[in-house]
Nucleic acid binder design. Structure first.
Length: 471
RNA sequence: GCCCCCAUCGUCUAGCGGCCGAGGACACCACCCUUUCAAGGUGGCGGCACGGGUUCGAAUCCCGUUGGGGGUGCCA
């Protein structure tokens, strides 16, 4: 096996974090670019948190991002739990060599000692007590004296004085392995050469590097990319922030837009463009160019990217992408009234007016509803204009015999009627729009009327005229 | 507290000692276009955290201050 081996090692939590998505993408871009391998490993050490369907969710989310398991670059998924024996065996080896020792202090006792000593963390109490294994005893790593230098592809060399690294736990009191150990054993077993992850892992790195060496392996190349933060500049959290990739997907963010946006958080392509195809990102991405400070995950900018991507879609693709949103259970019209041809005609006009696909139904709902849902405020506003009721009535009469029934003719006719009442087209169209669509804003009116048809248009205009003016 | 990381417009960034009187994008504002709303076009607002060095020359290098962030579990 030649070529670098990158890995993405999420723990299954029930949803896919956007920060994880970015990390996965970075790993993927590099693996592809360098003819290497992208290893997916599910870190299911903490059995209580693990559910099988969550793994499917991870694979699904990755596929949506363009990281497909059937791509030759992709390897896995592996499961950390499957290597549990190796974790314990490695711990045993460390113990046999004197690189680890058992300790019978409970977490409470450790805390008490720390408090008494005025220094936080474990104080190495059992280092030389020569304890053997036993129930409730944890196995701790014996951190050697000296300094550990972590070579990081984005930060350079980071030094840690070993005496600031406490003797961390390898095996819990019940004998199960901890993250730090399992993670390293797996990486060694899988021949990982490059560990690229979020910055929150940087403080773990000297410990893991020590473990690699203690286990007789040469540490990988490390890279720690800055975390994504919210408007408060805090790490994105599940509780306060919208972090589930699945949610963005459901709201109609395009995968390409999400991928492009995520890749440009902390990194930028050459030149003054940021909307660039994946092929270019894959070719140009370089860890040396990744920013060192946390990046704000800006919904507004994501939305802007998404709008760009939606508008760039060929109309047919746009129509296809809209389908799930037009046939959803929550659609605001009786499903049997939906007309694909009507939507297809309106599609190009809708395309420039939405930022996410989820906004599409609300743009065209009036075309498929039995009656428009009239917004009272909109009605009052449009009909309150002097001459509006008259324009509405006259337009209804005029449209009854209009020939041909085309957007152009509809517009010209209304323009004439409006002018007769001293109203410019912008004002004159308002009452018609509210009467037919229920709102003051929406896709271009005359095009909508054309596809709605004469009968339905007249029915709605007459209904509205009968409703009278706002009191 | 201790360890580590970081610091260019509100935000994402370009910049890697002279090309910077700091460029682009999002957001915001104005105007144009216009059947509403968008889209599009044009223009505008707005920044090198601060203080010391180094240098002929610093946004770029060094130190300090301040300010942010991450970590500090028998979580991952």
């Amino acid at each position: 096996m030649t070529g670098p081996r990158y890995r993405f090692a999420p723990s299954p939590t029930g949803f896919f974090h956007v920060g994880g998505a970015r990390t996965a993408l970075y790993n993927w871009a590099l693996a592809k670019q360098q003819g290497g391998t992208f290893v997916l490993r599910i870190e299911d050490t903490d059995e209580a948190r693990n559910r099988p369907e969550w793994t499917e969710g991870i694979i699904d989310a990755l596929a949506w991002l363009g990281i497909h398991r059937d791509d030759p670059t992709f390897e896995g998924p592996y499961f950390q739990s499957a290597l549990a024996d190796q974790h314990v065996a490695a711990a045993q080896r460390l113990y046999d060599r004197g690189s680890a020792y058992y300790c019978d202090l409970t977490p409470e006792q450790v805390q008490e000692r720390a408090k008494a000593a005025g220094k936080p963390g474990y104080d190495g109490y059992s280092r030389d007590r020569g304890l053997g294994p036993g129930p409730g005893r944890v196995l701790r790593f014996r951190v050697p004296p000296g300094t550990t230098v972590v070579g990081d592809a984005v930060r350079g060399e980071v030094e840690f004085a070993n005496d600031t690294l406490e003797d961390f736990v390898l095996l819990r009191g019940n004998g199960t392995p901890m993250f730090l150990l399992a993670n390293v054993v797996d990486d060694i077993a899988m021949g990982i050469t490059h560990v690229l992850r979020a910055e929150e892992h940087l403080p773990n790195t000297p410990k893991q590097q020590l473990l690699w060496r203690a286990l007789g392996a040469e540490p990988p190349a490390w890279a720690h990319v800055p975390v994504l933060v919210n408007e408060q500049r805090k790490k994105l959290s599940k509780r306060r922030d919208k972090v589930a990739l699945e949610q963005y997907r459901a709201e109609g963010y395009l995968a390409e837009a999400m991928v492009n946006y995520l890749m440009t958080l902390g990194w930028s392509p050459r030149g003054d463009r940021e909307i660039v195809p994946w092929s270019q990102i894959e070719a140009e991405f370089d860890l040396a160019d990744v920013n060192h400070s946390p990046a704000f995950f800006d919904l507004k900018k994501l939305a802007a990217f998404n709008g760009e991507y939606i508008r760039a879609l060929p109309v047919d693709d746009f129509v296809a992408a809209c389908q799930p949103y037009l046939h959803d259970d929550g659609v605001p019209w009786p499903p049997e009234r939906y007309r694909p041809a009507v939507f297809a005609q309106m599609a190009p006009l809708v395309q420039t007016r939405v930022v996410t696909l989820a906004e599409v139904p609300a743009m065209v709902d009036f075309l498929f509803q039995a009656d428009p849902v009239v917004d009272p405020a909109a009605w009052t506003k449009a009909m309150g204009v002097a001459g509006a009721p008259a324009v509405l009535a006259e337009t209804a009469r005029c449209y009854a015999t209009l020939d041909p029934w085309s957007a152009e003719a509809l517009k010209d006719a209304l323009d004439r009627i409006g002018t007769a009442h001293g109203l410019k087209l912008g004002k004159a169209q308002a009452p018609i729009r509210v009467a037919v669509t229920g709102r003051t804003v929406g896709p271009p009116l005359f095009e909508a009327l054309e596809v709605l048809g004469r009968d339905e248009t007249l029915r709605r205009l007459t209904d509205a005229a009968g409703r009278g003016t706002p009191g």
